[in-house]
């Protein structure tokens, strides 16, 4: 194996590595779809965001229309304040309804937007007023159990 063949192989090797990185970044990761054009931000307050995380998608009718930029706790009302980066191509009416959904039973959580009928649109920096918190599975189950327990003796 002389020197030039070694150089050639190392070149191929490094190129393969670069290709793998590009593949992982664009095809596997969200570097390609993650870039939002001319974004504007909105905020929404939730009582409980469950397992929602920064960079989770914001969808309307299943189409990704933005991403969660940042989440923090409002110290006065003890509510979660979620800052959303919206795609500049999409605008939503003022009375849009924001819910926290889960894709599939075990999938990740995202914010779903359901547009209302208000003629005015949300402007950059606006707050989405109508929100519904995440469905916390444990709560749901315990509620179900309590109600069963409560109605149990009555039916008997």
């Amino acid at each position: 194996m002389n020197r030039t063949t070694i150089d050639l192989w190392v070149g191929i090797f490094v190129t393969l590595g670069a290709l793998a990185l590009v593949f992982l970044a664009l095809k596997v990761g969200n570097l390609s779809g993650g870039q939002i054009r001319s974004p504007y931000s909105l905020t929404a307050n939730f009582d409980n965001i469950g397992g929602l995380k920064a960079r989770a998608p914001v969808k309307s009718a299943g189409v990704v229309v933005g991403r969660i930029q940042e989440i923090h706790l409002d110290k006065q009302h003890y509510q979660a304040v979620v800052t959303i980066q919206m795609d500049g191509r999409y605008t939503f009416p003022k009375d849009t309804f924001a819910t926290i959904n889960t894709s599939g039973l075990l999938g990740e959580q995202y914010i779903g937007l359901e547009p209302g009928g208000d003629p005015d649109d949300l402007k950059p920096g606006d707050v989405i007023k109508k929100t519904q918190s995440a469905v916390v599975l444990e709560k749901l189950i315990s509620q179900f159990m309590f109600s069963k327990a409560a109605e149990g003796p009555a039916t008997k």
Binding site: L21, L24, A25, K27, V28, G29, N30, L31, S32, G33, G34, R55, P57, V64, S103, G107, E108
Partner: peptide, 19 residues
């Protein structure tokens, strides 16, 4: 298959950390 993957694999958090 691909879109679910892209939605949850983050470039900086997952890929860069792996590197």
């Amino acid at each position: 298959f691909w879109s679910q993957m892209q939605a949850s694999v983050d470039f900086r958090n997952d890929i860069v950390n792996g590197v």
